[in-house]
Design a protein around this nucleic acid. Structure first.
Lengths: 139, 139
DNA sequence: TCATATAGTTTGATAATCAAACTAGTTGGT
DNA sequence: ACCAACTAGTTTGATTATCAAACTATATGA
């Protein structure tokens, strides 16, 4: 007999796998790379940050991030702005256009979430949100 | 005021982002590529499947998957087995060694899940599992 | 002041990926 | 039964992503 933790673990993994596939399909349709939209998503969620920190969150080296930010800059989605106190450092910041892309992507996620919880009543949605928020805070 | 769906959506996205970063870190430590472990995870979670279906789930073209499965085969993690009724098709199946890798990776996930739900009682874990399973089934 | 550390870029090589052409097998309409 | 249209997977040739390591510019601390 499987423990409840094992069942939950597999539910988490299945959700993660399905969301990954969904995300990949979405970005492919838009003709942008997964890493690119991932960077936009991180900047949208956490705000402007230095190259190094963004590289860590995206999961690439700073060398790779330099190229990625070059491409994002060419596409007018981000801009490099000087760090206030450390002249070695550079902040990566979403442009208006980048913010728009982030919001569009977020709206697609919202559609998906609504679709996935179509059979839920308001209390169940609220309950699931509470439980997932507790999980996120423990991360 | 944000709707409950929006809150849940952002909880899902935060969970997905955090799990992605965790997965990336784990995979880097092991020295294998994210795509490779992703394929193993999909095969472990959903069972053997044809090239095309695996390509869709991994999010690459069938051409790319051919190379990936070649590499996985060289590493003795998967094998190509004939499809019962369609001779054009090939099933990708985890080997014993591939299954072992999946189980090791799954154990890491389970540790994480237990850690994330350390503050939950048994009923809450069961409840979250029920809700997430319903979400997964709607995917 | 100067040795050491850090942020970001560049470089050269390797690996991942794609689109399109190709092979082999299936299916449906006549 | 035949054959045109379709599908699964592979191969090929080119492009892109990525890394490690060397490099530049700035910061820090003894």
């Amino acid at each position: 007999m499987k423990s409840e933790s094992e069942n939950l673990n597999h539910a988490f993994i299945e959700f993660y796998e399905k969301l990954s596939s969904w995300e990949l399909k979405i970005v492919k349709d838009k003709g942008v790379s997964l890493t690119l939209i991932h960077a936009v998503e991180i900047l949208g969620a956490f705000g402007s940050m230095p190259m190094k920190e963004l590289a860590n969150k995206v999961g690439v080296t700073t060398g790779t991030l330099t190229v990625l930010v070059d491409n994002l800059t060419k596409a007018k989605l981000v801009e490099r702005v000087p760090h206030g106190t450390d002249r070695r450092s550079i902040l990566v910041k979403l442009t208006d256009q980048g913010t728009k892309l982030f919001q569009e992507h977020d709206a697609l996620h919202l559609n998906l979430t609504k679709q996935l919880t179509a059979g839920f009543n308001e209390e169940e949605i609220q309950l699931l949100n509470k439980l997932m928020s507790r999980v996120n805070n423990a991360f």
